[in-house]
Design a protein around this nucleic acid. Structure first.
Lengths: 111, 111
DNA sequence: CATCAAGATAGCTGAATAACTATATAGGAT
DNA sequence: ATCCTATATAGTTATTCAGCTATCTTGATG
């Protein structure tokens, strides 16, 4: 556990928001949630901010904020093509969160 | 996912704090982290607030605050014996968090 | 009954979150 | 060069978080 509690906490904090969870869910299967893009592949490059903004019903700056928050926690990466920004999920980082919780979920019962 | 995003977010928010993570880690194996108690079994009843307060180095009201936060998220339960309050981990609830993250960690790759 | 000990509650403060509008920046198209 | 479009940044506001000290409540004990 003490193998970086603070980074784990930051990670879980980033996951602890309704809108961010929704966005991550969408990004985990972009083709199921967004139309195809002209200038970048949904899966390979990621989803553009505009699509997420339209679908989630928040202002564009607020969505950018959430995406930057996720990015700081390492949960997404971004890529710029022309003047679009594409955000892609980093599933390994989600897995790290799961791994950190694994030991808590299985408490040691000493005799 | 939409099977209660808001409760999942609350759960992950509760997990997203260094001190609360530390406390939960201790509660996942109380005998490894605390001395035996006179008036309640560490595992069966939980750990008393005083032990946690001493070990974590925060004020007692702050610790009570964190424990109540965890309790609202369903991550711990409390039991009062005499004038001690014992807090015990609810590993099933941690497992719920893991389950919610499981689908994100395994993104669908459609052909 | 008076006192002590354990925890909870009240009340305060500063920092971080989450939202918005308005504006800046940068690339394409006319 | 100008305009349009996509995103980022600035700046504001209200709320929540995380900590503290001081006090209340409750049970045990002299």
């Amino acid at each position: 556990m003490d193998a970086d509690v603070s980074s784990t906490a930051e990670l879980l904090r980033a996951l602890g928001n309704e809108h961010r969870l929704t966005i991550l869910d969408w990004l985990s299967d972009p083709r199921a949630h967004f139309p195809a893009q002209r200038d970048g592949d949904l899966v390979t490059d990621g989803v553009c901010v505009g699509f997420i903004t339209d679908k989630i019903g928040l202002s564009q700056p607020t969505v950018t904020n959430h995406l930057q928050y996720l990015s700081k926690a390492g949960l997404v990466t971004s890529k710029r093509i022309k003047n679009w920004a594409f955000y892609r999920l980093v599933p390994e980082r989600v897995e790290e969160a799961r791994a950190a919780l694994a030991r808590l979920a299985l408490p040691v019962q000493r005799p």
